[in-house]
Design a protein around this nucleic acid. Structure first.
Lengths: 312, 312
DNA sequence: CACCTTGATAAAGATATTTTATTTATTTGT
DNA sequence: ACAAATAAATAAAATATCTTTATCAAGGTG
């Protein structure tokens, strides 16, 4: 059997005539006869009662008519369903993000994207950078947002946002807000930091190393797995810290903590979108990837991209 | 789109390989590649992620997989549904019958037929012979059972059962049960008869005419539309009548009425199956038509055919 | 590094479908 | 009733489509 046969059959039944169906289908009448005959032969029944002046469905024809309508409709629907996928009217993808981009960048991005493409379901996973990379290689996520790369051999990695780390201190710290201190002054302080291996910690230690200070010279009094918890600890006067500006912004504005500038210490760090080049493209994931750089058309890009210079 | 493409697609997806699908489908691997490519081109999406060692469905492929399974299953079902019709596992037809065959022959026939072909739905209409013929020409019924024909030009008409009319009288009538009376004796009697135009009445009048008695010579004291009602009236002593043996049999056996023989009066009459030759065949109706003559295989024909000589 | 498996591609060959031309049957208009 | 018209069937040629054989390229394996 064959969809062409069914389609021709439906039109012959609908228009009650081989010639009429042929015109409707832009084919010759013998071709219609041929399709109907081949279908009748296949099924072993006459489908039409050909007679004086009219062509009428037999019982088997009536039965087939109902079934064929459904099949042809269903097969046409396939095209539109696949098209919906291409046109981002439907679809889904999974994005993984490390904590800073996941908590401070992704929510707004997702919000804007969802407003633009309401039919797309987005699944989000948040964990450490290493886990995000593992998920990607494992093909459990379509895209990742993270602060640092580990292996990176098969992974496409594009910077999409420049974050910077800021030195924060409790409001009652002897350094004044906005004061510029020297790098060596840091050695005397007590630090509360994210665990080793976290993107933030690695960035900070790399910056110090560039300024000739080894990580062992710092006095780390506490390690915490959550940037928000660290900020809370700094607020409480337990020590000072270096955290992503993205996370510190609100407590800074509220005066719960203060920012200290360190002379000559470069604390900028890129945030990256990562993607497995060797894996297939998912329309929605690709659209989101583009969206990260271009932003929504009806909304001049995610706010994070405005605050920090977007990097193509 | 085309069912072949979908079928090949399903097997490639199922077996996760072009070569494996090719073997399963008894075709060459390039033919499989061709079908998948043409489908991908048609839909404008990649359906498989072809890679080292494995072939994996893309998102669009997964979507298509679900739809294609249904379509292919549905199209396969068509063949079996049509086959059920051919094999009389399903189907329906409408039969019309005049009162005598409809009430005394058809019930048993239908019962036997239904036992033999339980999937077939039978619709029955009962009315006068003229109405049955009109229904047939109007194509409202597939078959008809009746006692007499009117036009008959386009109608195939086969006798399937010989009925005979019997003269019945009340138990207390002066004629004795089984007594043979002369035709002229009938003129002195008071008759209760079916209406003019009914098969029974026409047969009776035609028989009388053959014996030289015109219908005006009879004294008809009552006309009734129902044979059963006539028998009741005869029981009650309102007169005598001539009715189908089929209808009179039970009251005769119970002694509620008695049968009188009329010397030299031929009251046999055929019952006919009628069919419109110029109309299409319905599998179930045709099977029933055959069944009327051959009877059920597991049940030596309908009892009516045993009591009266069946006529081929 | 030779060898095997898997899918893609090209070109020839085989099928299937469509068209043009014609036939048959029936209907319609005069 | 007879020519013209309409509708479907059929035959043969033309075309389109699908399949195969042969071959290639890439990746994995012993």
């Amino acid at each position: 059997m064959n969809l062409k046969q069914l389609e021709v059959f439906l039109w012959v039944a609908e228009l009650k005539g081989f010639t009429k169906a042929a015109k409707r289908l832009y084919m010759s009448q013998p071709a219609v006869s041929f399709q109907i005959q081949s279908l009748e032969e296949l099924l072993g029944v006459k489908l039409f009662w050909r007679n004086e002046k009219n062509v009428i469905l037999t019982e088997a024809g009536k039965l087939l008519f109902e079934q064929a309508k459904q099949i042809v409709a269903h097969s046409n629907k396939i095209k539109s369903v696949v098209n919906d996928l291409k046109e981002l009217k439907t679809g889904s993808f999974t994005i993984g993000a490390s904590t800073i981009p996941g908590e401070y960048v992704l929510p707004k991005l997702i919000g804007d994207f969802h407003r633009r493409f309401p039919g797309i379901q987005i699944n989000v996973r948040i964990a450490g950078s290493a886990q995000v990379e593992a998920w990607l290689l494992n093909r459990e996520i379509d895209l990742g947002l993270c602060g640092a790369l580990i292996s990176g051999k098969e992974i496409e990695c594009l910077p999409f946002l420049t974050d910077r780390l800021v030195l924060i201190a409790p409001p009652d710290h002897r350094w004044k807000s906005g004061e510029e201190v020297k790098i060596n002054d840091l050695i005397k302080e007590e630090f509360i930091l994210r665990e080793s291996g976290s993107g933030t910690r690695k960035t900070f230690e790399a910056s110090l190393a560039r300024s000739g200070i080894s990580k062992e010279q710092l006095s780390v009094v506490m390690e915490m797995g959550s940037t928000r918890a660290i900020i809370g600890a700094v607020e409480a006067g337990l020590g000072i810290s270096v955290v992503s500006f993205l996370a510190a912004r609100e407590p800074l504005l509220l005066g719960l903590i203060k920012e200290i500038t360190v002379h000559n210490l470069d604390l900028d760090r890129e945030l990256y979108v990562i993607r497995d080049q060797s894996w297939m493209n998912n329309f929605a994931a690709e659209a989101f990837h583009d969206f990260i750089f271009t932003g929504s058309p009806d909304n001049q890009g995610p706010s994070a991209n405005k605050i920090f210079t977007p990097v193509s």
